[in-house]
Design a protein around this nucleic acid. Structure first.
Length: 125
RNA sequence: AGGGUUUAAGAGGUGGUUGCUCUGGGAGUUCUUUGAAAAGCUCCCAGGGAGGAAAGUCCGGGCUCCACAGGGGAGGACGCCGGGUAACACCCGGAGGGAGUAAUCCCUGGAAAGGGCCACAGAAAACAGACCACCAGCGGCCUAAGGAGUUUUUAAAAACUCCUUAGGUGCGGGCAAGGGUGAAAAGGUGGGGUAAGAGCCCACCGCACCGGAUGGUAACAUCCGGUGGCACGGUAACCCCCGUCCGGAGCAAGGCCAAAAAGAGCGCGACGGGUGCCCCGCCCAAUGCGCUCGGGUAGGCCGCUUGAGGGUAGGAGUAAUCCUACCCCCAGAGAAAUAACCACCACCUGGGUAAUUUUUUCACAAAGAUGAAAAAAUUACCCAGGUAACAGAACCCGGCUUACUUAAACCCUGCUU
RNA sequence: GCCCCCAUCGUCUAGCCAGGUCCAGGACACCGGCCUUUCACGCCGGCGACAGGGGUUCAAAUCCCCUUGGGGGCG
């Protein structure tokens, strides 16, 4: 598996899998911009799913947001908990930010959470 | 300088790093007694990877299934003429009418086949009729004057009847020229005519119909002759009539494979289904078919990209478009692929430096020249920032519409020379 | 992706098919007044809408086209 790749294996692609994460996952708000839902899997690696609401009207803007989030996840996989299915739901206001601003905010929030043991520790499983 | 109209063009480029997807090639690995092949997975190499509107889903096709799409009805679409096209509601060229000072744009079968509607206002809204006004030639009636006759009477005079003239008219009539309206009111001008008037009659113009000639493939145009005094408002994006066209559904069409599960009840020989507008016709039919309830899957493959394809050159045509030759293969995803960052070039904005030109001021007694300072314009270099807007394929094409940014040409108005 | 449907006061709706009498009617809500010691009920009055643009027509909520915003269905 590539370090900074994001192949089909590493994406959540089926309706069942999405439903499972929504049902069992823990929710985490990042600055009222992203909603991250995660639940452990037994694959040994992280998987990503993105849900963008149609409140973002234009298809081009929805695609842009998805690409940003995919880029964010791919570059910084170790910010997220190990061996987990992660779903990210962006808030419609995300469109008003630039990619750099988004990156900064998420980095600050996730790294501070990561230092706490209940997010990234053994008691997690 | 301002306003307007039309047409055309455009969607930043190159390279690199990390990553996604498809195709082709290669290597490894899993399974097996062994070997090989196929498939999956991982890695490497090479190549391709959104639009002019991909959009809205408004039209027209291809394609697939329903029977091979046949007949009738219903329903829908279109509508001047000619051409283009696979087809169109599209495009090109023309005709007639309308809007605008103009560039230019817009509209298009039939209202004497029939039905409906035309509010308010107005005399009257489609058969013509006649509210006001006008007229007094005709029949009445009223008033006045004059004349004649009869009756009463001595006479004067009175009454009645008739005639004539003049005036009048809430009567019978004449008339449609004028009339506050309205979107729309039954030709216009002049003359004759009359009681008053009027296509009532006449001249010219207009209009309708008929016949002919010329030009044009045609729509139509021009001209000549005749007939008609003129009869015939609007609305068909109301119904309708005429002509032309359309069978229905849509790639979630449709086909194949795999997996899972639990059945129960009811109906069915001219009834039901295939059929998703209806009827006919056609096809199917008993270890069959349909309906209702309940249960189980909702995975993979094909369709899926070579096509009314693109580029270049030549030819035909006013043009839309078509023909010929050569070359090219150019997205195929499926919780859905193009992003992030960097460098350079190009463009735009702001600032700085230098050079050139012009103007003003100062220095020398004055002019010129020279020097200095300030302002403006152009060019070059450097620095900083930005690189957009409209917007994302989902079977594929041809259009329309709605969006974005520029440029050019043309028209009108104003000012300067 | 494809195929349909809808849009009228703050809310629910009538009118649309067959255009005019509609500066659009009704109910609830809101505001003001009357009634009542006060509130409620009741009575009277008021405020308030045709999604936006263009066209046909003398005249459009209604007919036609475009845009916008909602809702539903499919294997």
């Amino acid at each position: 598996m590539k370090k900074e790749g994001l192949s089909k294996k590493e994406r959540i692609r089926k309706n069942k899998e999405f439903a499972k994460v929504f049902k069992e996952g823990k929710k985490l708000w990042i600055n009222s911009i992203l909603l991250i839902i995660y639940t452990p899997n037994d694959l040994g690696y992280r998987r990503l799913g993105i849900v963008v609401s149609k409140k973002i009207k234009k298809a081009t803007q929805r695609n842009k947001v998805k690409r940003w989030i995919r880029e964010l996840f791919r570059r910084n996989k170790d910010w997220f908990p190990e061996s987990c299915d992660v779903i990210i739901i962006p808030h419609p206001n995300l469109i008003n930010l630039s990619y750099k601003e988004l990156l900064e905010k998420v980095k600050r929030e996730l790294l501070s959470l990561r230092s706490k043991s209940d997010f990234y520790g053994k008691g997690y499983n």
